[in-house]
Design a protein around this nucleic acid. Structure first.
Length: 771
RNA sequence: GCCGAGAUGGCGAAAUGGUAGACGCACUAGCUUUAGGAGCUAGCGGGGAAACCCAUGGAGGUUCAAGUCCUCUUCUCGGCACCA
């Protein structure tokens, strides 16, 4: 066995610590390539195989790009704020700062072992005050531009985590993290107006090369709907009732109106006992109940009557919670003949249904002519609840002064540091644990100097990851979040690799923050979007085909695999498992297959060094073709087929005992290097080259070696394969036809009928059409 | 219900409209090793003695030629879901 991974890894691993070759160089003349893979949350359980997989894929690509002569920026950092660390810290009575340090150290060592070629000079950590200073700065700018406001609002409250949750963090009425059923609570919350950017976020997708499904998920989440706002008069009242509809053509089919229980019109109807009862009942319903009861619609007659602005028909106004106050105008015109939901409701409460009604396209014009409505656009996208009642997050840099109201912390006072205390248990009141730390909370108003209190809410997890890709461009800057010239050089991110679970929220939030910073002029004017290409990586399941989980006990720890097989085998196996973006199950046996391959290629190369003066033509052809194939596959993230090609060639070379001279061996070593960095380095050194193969030039193939002298063509009769012929690639039809016709089998078929047509595709096939 | 991605041997999977199943695993036979869950050689979609036939979820279609293009359909996975 030529491949003693323990010895080889030990020999080389230290050489990569602080290795200059893995650094992205600001303003270098080479073409830049910014390759980003999502930074992990450093959990206590360490880096798992999923991380290892996506990071290795990105690493292979980054190594290839370096060898292709690009100036590569391939950074890594830590998205370290978050509940698990906070909860664990409370449990063991230690500071989350310390626990985070331990976890990131562990992750970093695991990444080192996996030979991930990150530029550690640019490491960032969202919990580092020098980093979150700028996260806070961004918040202040949002506030100054009127995009962050504090509002009383009903939020989803997790009674177990004691935290307010954004809508997207509630899954089936349950807390995304702990699974506890959420409740509704009214709390004063910071809200960021991402909806102001809805159209920009939609339009901006045109400036990206995201894969289709990522674009689709962004478009669906924003969900733009074009329609009309129509005003209905309310009988015996001054107010008008405004509705939003995408079907103005059904306006004359309206038989009743529905308003949400929270609609402003409902407020002065509380004298009506039935209405009051219904509204109060609805309030008590949790999200869970509202979702579960989705099919069972409930409502009550409001006592009010609306007037159809076109035909003057009087129609009753109902109150029902199937109409949402948060969408459109919180009121609808119900057309039970053309809307299933309205029909269900109408049937339940015996409301009229105009089944004869035929929609009329011309109504749109009439509405506008009469001035009773105008075109309007609605987005599904909601504003972003930005407050969390927790300790382990970025403090929101705001001060509440009894005289001046909400005042921003001045730039000089940033960052507002988290107080380092041991006790910060969440409260039941809905207030952040920071509220109990009096000496931190009590402060002076930056405006009037009077007594004031700090905001005790912290930011959501997303805040730190919204802009980290900018910080990598200039990670140590303490004057600004990053110097514009450096961003000008590195941005946009060329390839962003991440998980499907971040294709909507993280991507949308970070695009929004980037666009906002663009409006501020702090990011380059000519770069409207932060990411060029977005790829989503696949998922690795346990050997049993289930998602890896500690409870099932099917998790795979990369370190354990590396202990047994070595890093090179682990990396190559993960890349060989299947397409980079697919779901794949772990398979110990296949891992052994890859070990055989690494062993075989090591033997082949190490035993050939210096043995052959020249490589014969066949060998040269194999190597050149391989160089092209592997390079093309890596460029497209098709690592599995790249490795298959390597295997195929190695099998062929050793089976046919084709010797390679050092020149061709060197080419082989270099194309193996991105996958199996340690053993490639060893071979590179044995070939007499200097450290390191990972900054060596990717070998160039010569086109003249890519064409074969003889190729095999298929001979078809009526499209069915009946034989093959071996000819030169340039062979003309007449020649191929002659050879093909001489085949016994072909003759047999030709004699059965008349040849009416011959189709000859050079290099592929000849097809005789016989009738 | 809506959006997206899929469906190819026993398994993971390859295939610019042109020899379906590359590569790997498993399996079978033989060799080899003190032994092996190690290595080597050969075979390996189904049927058939063979000629040949059948085969890429299903049904149609386009084409000289379809896993690949078109129409319809079934199922699986992921996401969203009372959004007017």
């Amino acid at each position: 066995m030529a491949y003693d991974f323990v010895k080889i890894e030990k020999k080389w691993i230290g050489r990569y610590d602080g290795f200059e070759g893995f650094r992205g160089k600001n303003f270098d003349n080479k073409e830049k390539k910014y390759i980003l893979v999502e930074f992990p949350y450093p959990s206590g359980s360490g880096l798992h195989v999923g991380h290892a997989f996506s990071m290795t894929g990105s690493d292979v690509y980054a190594r290839y790009m370096r060898m292709m002569g690009k100036n590569v920026l391939f950074p890594m950092g830590w998205d370290a704020f978050g509940l698990p660390t906070e909860n664990y810290a409370i449990k063991v009575g230690r500071k989350p700062q310390i626990i985070t340090k331990e976890n990131t150290d562990k992750f970093k060592e695991q990444m080192r072992r996996l030979a991930l070629s990150f530029d550690w000079e640019r490491e960032v950590n969202t919990t580092d005050p020098d980093y979150y200073k700028w996260t806070q700065w961004i918040f202040i700018k949002l506030f100054e531009k009127g995009l962050a406001t504090k509002e009383e609002m009903a939020i989803n409250w997790c009674p177990s985590c004691k935290i307010g949750l954004a809508n997207e963090e509630v899954i089936d009425g349950k807390c995304e993290r702990c699974g506890t059923e959420t409740e509704r609570r009214t709390i004063s919350q910071w809200v960021v107006k991402i909806t102001a950017y809805a159209e920009r976020l939609l339009e901006g997708l045109k400036n990206t090369n995201f894969i289709e499904k990522v674009k689709a998920s962004q478009i669906n989440w924003i969900d733009k709907r074009e329609g009309v706002k129509i005003r209905f008069a309310v009988k015996n009242r001054d107010e008008l009732l405004e509705v939003f509809t995408t079907r103005p053509d059904t306006l004359l089919g309206v038989t009743f109106m529905v308003i949400a229980p929270e609609h402003k019109l409902v407020a002065d109807l509380m004298g009506n006992e039935e209405v009051k009862k219904y509204v109060e009942e609805t309030k008590k319903k949790s999200e869970m109940e509202r979702t579960e009861l989705a099919k069972e619609k409930t409502g009550v007659f409001s006592g009010l009557v609306a007037v159809n602005p076109i035909n003057g028909k009087e129609i009753p106004i109902w109150i029902a919670d199937y109409v949402l106050v948060s969408y459109g105008t919180g009121a609808i015109m119900a057309v039970p003949s053309h809307d299933e939901r309205d029909e269900t409701f109408a049937k339940k409460y015996s409301l009229p249904i105009d089944r004869e009604y035929v929609p009329d396209e011309k109504l749109m014009e009439t509405i506008i002519e009469k001035g009773v409505g105008e075109r309007s656009v609605n987005y599904h996208l909601r504003d972003w609840i930005f407050s969390r009642q927790h300790y382990w997050g970025e403090p929101i840099p705001m001060i509440n002064c009894p005289v001046c109201g909400w005042v921003t912390v001045s730039d000089e006072e940033l960052p507002v540091r988290l107080p380092e205390v041991l006790k910060y248990q969440p409260t039941d009141t809905g207030e952040s644990p920071l509220a109990n730390i009096t000496e931190w909370v009590e402060t002076e108003c930056p405006k009037c100097g009077g007594k004031a209190r700090r905001e005790t809410d912290t930011m959501p997890n997303w805040a730190g990851s919204d802009w980290y890709f900018l910080r990598y461009c200039d990670p140590k800057n303490n004057q600004e979040l990053a110097e514009i010239s450096k961003m000008q050089y590195w941005m946009p991110v060329d390839v962003y690799v991440g998980g499907d679970e971040h294709n909507t929220l993280h991507l949308l939030y970070s695009r929004f923050i980037y666009q906002f910073l663009w409006d501020l002029g702090v990011v380059p004017k000519n770069i409207p979007e932060p990411y060029n290409k977005r790829l989503s990586h696949g998922v690795i399941l346990g050997a049993d085909g289930n998602r890896m989980s500690k409870t099932i006990g099917n998790t795979v720890i990369p370190d354990n695999v590396a202990d047994v097989y070595g890093t090179d085998v682990l990396r190559t196996y993960m890349m060989f498992m299947g397409p980079f973006d697919s779901t794949m199950a772990w398979n110990e046996r296949s891992l052994i297959g890859v070990r055989r391959f690494i062993d075989k290629i090591s033997t082949l190369i190490l035993e050939s060094v210096g043995k052959y003066k020249e490589t014969d033509l066949e060998g040269i052809r194999i190597v050149h073709r391989l160089v092209r194939g592997v390079g093309e596959d890596i460029a497209e993230f098709k690592f599995n087929t790249a490795i298959a090609k390597l295997m195929e060639s190695v099998n062929y070379l050793s089976k046919n005992k084709i010797g390679l001279s050092n020149n061709e061996l060197s080419m082989m070593v270099r194309i193996l290097a991105p996958f199996a960095p340690f053993v490639a380095e060893e071979m590179w050194s044995r070939l007499g080259n200097n450290f390191s193969v990972h900054v060596a030039e990717w070998p160039k193939y010569n086109d003249k070696y890519l064409v074969s002298e003889i190729i095999t063509l298929s001979v078809q009769i009526n499209g069915k394969l009946r034989g093959t012929v071996e000819v030169t690639p340039e062979a003309e039809e007449a020649e191929v036809k002659n050879i093909a016709e001489s085949l016994e089998k072909v003759q047999k078929y030709l004699s059965e009928g008349k040849v009416v047509k011959i189709i000859y595709i050079k290099g592929k096939t000849i097809n005789f059409v016989v009738v």
